Simulated scan of single mutants.
Amino acid sequence: MSSRKPKLILVFEPEKACFDRLVADNHVPERAAEIASYLAQSTDFAAEFDALAAACQKRGLSFAPVTLDDDASALAGEDQKTTLVWTLTDGVAYFRGGAAPALARLNGLKAIGADDALFALCQDKFRSGAVLGALGLPVPQAGLARDGAWLVAPPASPAGWFVKPNRLGAKIGIWPDSHCHDLGHALKLSRRVFAAYRDDVIVQPYVAGRNARASFLGLRLDTGVEALGIAFVDSGGDFQTMQDSLALYGDTGAAAKAAGKYTEPVLLPVAGSQPEADARIRRIAERLMVGLGLRDVFSIDFRVEADDSVHLIEFEVCPGLPCFDFRDYCRQQWGLSLADAMAEAAANRLLA
C-alpha cells in the first residue's frame, strides 16, 4: 500500500498559451482571441484554486493545478494508486486538452471523466452525430461543407438550416444569420468560417424549441441519471451567438460585471413545465452512459419542443465547471459549492 497522500491533479490549458500558439500558427490575432476565449473557464477558475485546495485538504487529499504544457512531466512521477487526474478543458484541434486523459492512461493513473476516445469524438460534431445516430438517438442529420463546397449534402428542411463550425466551441463563429433558409447562404457561411477559423461547418435542419442542458457530476461511484440537473437555458434569443457567449466569461464577462451589465441566462427546471421531456432526456442520457461511456462529469445540450419532442444537439465531456449553469447544478443537486462538489467527487474515487 502506498504511503503517499492521495492527490487530485487538475489539468488545464491557459487562455494565453492557446492564443500565443494560434498566433504563431498565423491565425489573425482577433480570431485567435475568439478561439482562445473558450478557455476562459481556466482563467475564471484560477481564482478558486485555493478554495479547491482547502476543500481537498478537508477530505484528506492534496491538490495540484497543472498547465497542459507541464502535464507530461508532472504526471510522470505520480503514484498510480493515489493520484486522480481531472481534465478541465477538452480539444483535439484548436484546443489540446484531449491529450491530458491520454497521458493519464499512459502513466497508469486514474482519471475522472469519460474515456479519452470520447474527448476526440465530442469535438468533431459531424462524426459525433453519426455515432449518436447509430445509437438510435434523436440527433438532427447533418451535411458537411468546407470553404463553400459540400463534402456531404444536408437533408431537405422546410424550416431552414442551422450552420455552425464542426470542431470549434459551439458558439465560435455563430452569427445571427446562422439560422438560414437558403443553402447558398449556408455555403457562404462555410466560406466565412473557413476564412476566419480554418474549420468546416455542419449544416443541420433547424429545429424549433427551447434550449435545455443536462448537467451531471457523479459525486458517488454509483450515481446515475437520477442526479442529472435538466434546465431550460433562456438567454432571451433563439440561440446564443458568439458575442452572447463572450459576454459571460473571462475578461469580457469580468468587465461586464464591473460595469453592472452582466446578465446570466435564466435557468428553469424542465420537469417543472414539461415532465415528459425531462423523462425523455433522462432516458437519452442513460443510453449515452451505457452505450457511449459517458461517466463522472458531463453535459448534454438539447432542443425541446412544446409537444415534448427532444432533439439531442451535442454532448461535452468537459462541461464548463466554473460557468453559471454548472455552479447552479452543484448547489441545486448536491447542496455544495463547486469546489466542495469537485473535492467530494475526487475523494469518493480515491478513498473508496
Rank of each mutant, 00 (worst) to 15 (best):
R303W: 08
P275S: 02
D234N: 08
A258K: 15
V266D: 11
E264W: 06
G236S: 02
A247T: 03
L221F: 09
I313H: 01
Q243Y: 11
A227S: 13
S235G: 15
R282Y: 02
D301E: 15
G224A: 15
D307S: 02
D222F: 06
E264I: 11
G237C: 12
D234E: 10
Q243E: 15
S235W: 05
S273Q: 06
S245D: 14
R213E: 11
E314P: 00
A227Y: 08
Q240K: 15
A255E: 11
G293Y: 00
E264C: 12
T252L: 13
G236M: 00
V270F: 02
Q240Y: 08
A231L: 10
L221Y: 09
V266N: 07
E286N: 12
L268Y: 13
G237P: 06
V266W: 11
V225R: 05
Y262W: 13
K261Y: 07
S235N: 13
R213S: 14
A279P: 02
L246Q: 14
F239E: 04
G224N: 13
L312Y: 00
G229P: 02
G253Q: 05
Y262F: 11
V233G: 08
E286C: 07
G229F: 10
R283T: 09
R280E: 13
I313V: 10
F232P: 01
L294E: 09
A247P: 01
R280L: 12
V310H: 03
A214W: 02
V270A: 03
E226P: 08
F302G: 09
A214P: 01
D307E: 05
E226A: 14
L219S: 08
F232Y: 14
D307M: 06
A254K: 13
R287F: 03
T252C: 10
L248M: 11
R303Q: 10
